[in-house]
Write a protein that binds this DNA or RNA. Structure first.
Length: 491
RNA sequence: CGGGGUAUAGCGUAGCACGGUUAUCGCGCCUGCUUUGGGAGCAGGAGGUCGCAAGUUCGAAUCUUGCUACCCCGACCA
């Protein structure tokens, strides 16, 4: 087979880039750091959206839409929030262009300067809480459970397709509650929704937990996250959920009258996942032959490739296989029948393999004679020959098997790449030779985390929920510690 | 924003130190014939402001200056 792309062992970063381009998921655009999501990549994102949107609605939330622009003054109301985002904001300063006096092109009209600059949203807490102020007066208005699907802009220094782009797509939930307990519970609920989605739809095992103060969202009291391990041993934060306390309520003066006629600030959460999930999906399952998609998110789950020399042969095959396609579709399976005569079968095999289609059916004249179909599965690259009459009943089972196999494979990889470490020497050794998650004791201070990061580039990815409490000493400082946390180098 | 590098067809490239016919090759694209169970073969063909601007010269992809864009490494990050 023609190998015009890198393998993971040769160059993991290059492999990822080649894969995204060659599988036709996305490409770089004329705007530095911004990507064009191509139809096939967008179809996968639409699957992610559709499933998550339903989960978000099933947990009581409704969708709304807030502006892309945020007045600069709103932005600075919550001190740590501005501090966190100020360095990566795009700012709109003018609203008009004019012809250049020298006749060469077009320039910004300096007379059209905005009274107040507008920030292109890097996240929407401020504009949303400004609106919530008018919506919430009484405990009867609570809880307020709103989500929005939107694009946001964060002016990153270095970008990578899907993993970190200047503009990206996401959903952001913003909720308001009467009590602290309820808000904390909401943040946990949504983290569980994300974890369920990652594990059962994306086949990506994740670790749920709390972020250390250094990794916390700007403006949050607590940040929860699901953390996944990629095949190169680096961790990737796949989703976050924040308990915001009363920080934004205070900044935007959002108060409600309780049943007891007490005026109090509301309690808030926000939570989101982004197109970065596409990166997680790619790096969790794909191999040196290209993309591997979990069936539940694959835009095309089954592709049928007919082998034919002429129109008569094709029509014979079509007569037999089209009813099978219909039967599969009736079961909710998405099937593509590629009967183009402009590409050869071998070309199609390679193409669909690279695009990660979970199951391929091949039917040629020999099969028609014998009443068989060749079934190839993308995850294991195994092929078997089945009776045509059995296809209808066996394929959905096969898709389930693939979905499960991908999860099991990723889970085993994570288990094999999570190491318990009790000395600083071992910590550095494991990090450099093996990578992956390192479970180690930490004294709980930001200073130690900072020093570990400076020396090794590894950060605390997550303090797992339901962590076993055990006495130990910090792997770096030797000070007393009560639990292990997960360290890793991260995306 | 620091340090390094690159810019020639849709993509990847040769040519450039030493200026001189019609700018090289591969992939891809188009046409025809033969092919079709793992990225077909042969023949023919189309496609270029050599990043932009100025300069040196009889003559510039090649030399000089300025500009622009992009890539890699670092600090920052979902």
């Amino acid at each position: 087979m023609a190998k015009d792309f890198s393998t993971r062992a040769e160059n993991y970063a290059q492999w990822y880039n080649d894969l995204v381009i060659k599988a036709d998921l996305a490409e770089n655009s004329a705007v530095r750091g911004c990507m064009v999501i191509k139809p096939y990549g967008y179809a996968i994102w639409e699957r992610i959206q559709a499933v998550l949107d339903k989960k978000i609605k099933d947990t009581g939330h409704v969708n709304a839409y807030f502006p892309i622009f945020i007045p600069k003054s709103f932005f600075s109301r919550e001190a740590s929030h501005v501090e966190g985002f100020a360095k990566e904001c795009a700012v709109v300063t003018h609203y008009r262009l004019k012809n250049s006096p020298d006749g060469k092109g077009i320039i910004v009209d300096e007379d059209a300067k905005l009274e107040e600059e507008l920030i292109v949203r890097p996240t929407s807490e401020t504009i949303i809480w400004d609106a919530y102020k008018n919506w919430i007066k009484s405990y009867r208005d609570l809880p307020l459970l709103i989500n929005q699907w939107a694009n946001v802009v964060r002016w990153e220094m270095r970008t990578r397709l899907f993993l970190r782009t200047t503009e990206f797509l996401w959903q952001e939930g913003h909720t308001a509650h009467a009590t602290r307990e309820e808000a904390v519970k909401e943040a946990e609920t949504m983290l569980n929704v994300y974890a369920d989605f990652a594990e059962n739809w994306m086949s990506i095992p994740v670790i749920k937990g709390t972020k250390s103060p250094a990794e916390r969202f700007a403006g949050a009291i607590d940040t929860y996250a699901i953390e996944a391990l990629m095949q190169d041993g680096k961790a990737l934060q796949a989703g976050t959920s924040h308990f915001l306390g009363q920080n934004f309520a205070k900044a935007f003066d959002v108060k409600f009258l309780s049943k007891e006629n007490q005026l109090d600030f509301v309690w808030a959460t926000s939570w989101g996942v982004s197109t970065r999930l596409m990166g997680a999906l790619i790096m969790s399952h794909s191999d040196d032959n290209g993309l591997v998609l979990p069936p539940k998110l694959a835009p095309i789950q089954v592709v049928i490739v007919p082998i034919f020399k002429n129109a008569e042969q094709l029509s014979l095959i079509s007569d037999v296989i089209l009813p099978v396609k219909k039967a599969l579709e009736a079961k909710g399976i998405s099937v593509k029948y590629d009967d183009r005569d402009t590409q050869k079968p071998g070309w199609k095999f390679a193409e669909y393999e690279f695009k990660g289609i979970p199951v391929r059916l091949t039917v040629g004249p020999r099969d028609i004679e014998q009443g068989t179909v060749e079934v190839a599965r993308r995850d294991t690259l195994e092929k078997e020959v089945l009776q045509i009459k059995d296809i209808e009943n066996k394929i959905s089972n096969l898709l389930d098997q693939i979905q499960k196999n991908l999860y099991d494979r990723a889970f085993a990889f994570r288990e094999n790449n999570t190491t318990r470490v009790d000395s600083w020497k071992e910590f550095k050794e494991v990090l450099d030779t093996k990578g992956g998650f390192i479970s180690a004791h930490w004294d709980g201070t930001s200073e130690t985390e900072e020093k570990i990061k400076a020396e090794t580039k590894a950060t605390i990815r997550v303090i797992p929920f339901n962590n076993v409490l055990e006495n130990g000493s910090c792997v770096f400082s030797g000070k007393p510690s009560t639990q292990r946390v997960l360290f890793a180098r991260a995306y």
